[in-house]
Simulated scan of single mutants.
Amino acid sequence: MEQAVLAAEAGCMYIAPFVHELKAFFDETYHDDGPILGHCLRIQQYYERHSYKTRVKAAGLLNVDEAMRLAGVTSLTLAPALIDTLSKSEEPEEKVVDLSLFKQETNSTGDEIERLSFLDDENKFRKTFAKRQGTK
């Protein structure tokens, strides 16, 4: 989250969080148990709540289910094979909306993050980042 905040403060047009570790795309024996789909929602809500122009472009999706769960994110970066699969999907809009983390009636993460600032304060950034990662 700290990186997302700093990107917005620096005036970045967008950020592209990978929802899986890169290893998930190159090592067939690796299984990523923790895609950060909800993190994309939290970042987008933070930007909207605090009126940042920075947008979220989710990247590194592995399947159609993840794309549907991220329906509502500002934009997606998708592999050609996933685009092809999605183009052939005949899922009704209601199902996609129901699966989406961004659906209006339940889109609050409960993770209300106050407005943070790290611009020109590298020490604060490092301390906050380390605290959230559980390190010192």
Rank of each mutant, 00 (worst) to 15 (best):
residue 101 L to Y: 04
residue 132 R to I: 09
residue 102 F to K: 03
residue 103 K to I: 10
residue 76 L to T: 04
residue 127 K to I: 14
residue 115 R to I: 10
residue 106 T to E: 07
residue 108 S to R: 12
residue 78 L to Q: 01
residue 131 K to W: 08
residue 107 N to W: 03
residue 59 A to R: 06
residue 125 F to V: 07
residue 95 K to E: 14
residue 112 E to G: 05
residue 121 D to T: 08
residue 58 A to C: 08
residue 97 V to Q: 06
residue 57 K to D: 03
residue 124 K to C: 05
residue 77 T to P: 05
residue 124 K to G: 00
residue 105 E to G: 12
residue 113 I to G: 00
residue 130 A to H: 11
residue 100 S to V: 04
residue 117 S to W: 05
residue 77 T to V: 15
residue 126 R to T: 14
residue 77 T to W: 07
residue 80 P to V: 12
residue 83 I to E: 00
residue 68 M to K: 15
residue 100 S to D: 04
residue 76 L to G: 01
residue 95 K to R: 15
residue 125 F to S: 03
residue 78 L to H: 03
residue 61 L to H: 00
residue 122 E to T: 14
residue 127 K to T: 12
residue 113 I to D: 01
residue 70 L to V: 07
residue 106 T to Q: 08
residue 86 L to D: 00
residue 131 K to A: 14
residue 89 S to D: 07
residue 122 E to H: 13
residue 68 M to E: 15
residue 116 L to R: 12
residue 93 E to D: 12
residue 74 T to R: 13
residue 60 G to C: 02
residue 98 D to T: 11
residue 65 D to Y: 04
residue 114 E to H: 09
residue 123 N to R: 14
residue 115 R to H: 09
residue 80 P to W: 05
residue 126 R to S: 11
residue 92 P to G: 09
residue 82 L to Y: 03
residue 117 S to L: 03
residue 59 A to Y: 05
residue 80 P to G: 09
residue 111 D to I: 14
residue 120 D to S: 12
residue 125 F to D: 01
residue 116 L to A: 11
residue 77 T to F: 07
residue 77 T to I: 15
residue 88 K to S: 10
residue 99 L to D: 02
residue 78 L to G: 03
residue 116 L to F: 04
residue 89 S to M: 11
residue 70 L to W: 02
residue 121 D to A: 06
residue 85 T to A: 15
residue 107 N to P: 01
residue 61 L to P: 00
residue 108 S to I: 05
residue 122 E to F: 07
residue 79 A to I: 10
residue 68 M to I: 06
residue 106 T to M: 06
residue 97 V to L: 10
residue 90 E to Y: 11
residue 123 N to V: 15
residue 121 D to F: 06
residue 86 L to C: 05
residue 120 D to W: 09
residue 132 R to V: 09
residue 75 S to H: 10
residue 132 R to D: 04
residue 97 V to W: 04
residue 102 F to V: 03
residue 96 V to E: 01
residue 77 T to N: 12
residue 62 L to S: 05
residue 118 F to T: 00
residue 72 G to R: 02
residue 130 A to D: 13
residue 60 G to N: 02
residue 71 A to W: 11
residue 101 L to V: 07
residue 65 D to E: 12
residue 108 S to Q: 12
residue 113 I to H: 02
residue 73 V to C: 11
residue 57 K to W: 11
residue 109 T to I: 06
residue 111 D to G: 08
residue 88 K to D: 05
residue 102 F to N: 01
residue 117 S to T: 15
residue 80 P to T: 12
residue 75 S to V: 08
residue 59 A to M: 09
residue 89 S to V: 06
residue 91 E to P: 02
residue 57 K to R: 15
residue 117 S to C: 11
residue 129 F to W: 13
residue 105 E to P: 04
residue 84 D to W: 08
residue 65 D to I: 14
residue 57 K to C: 14
residue 76 L to D: 01
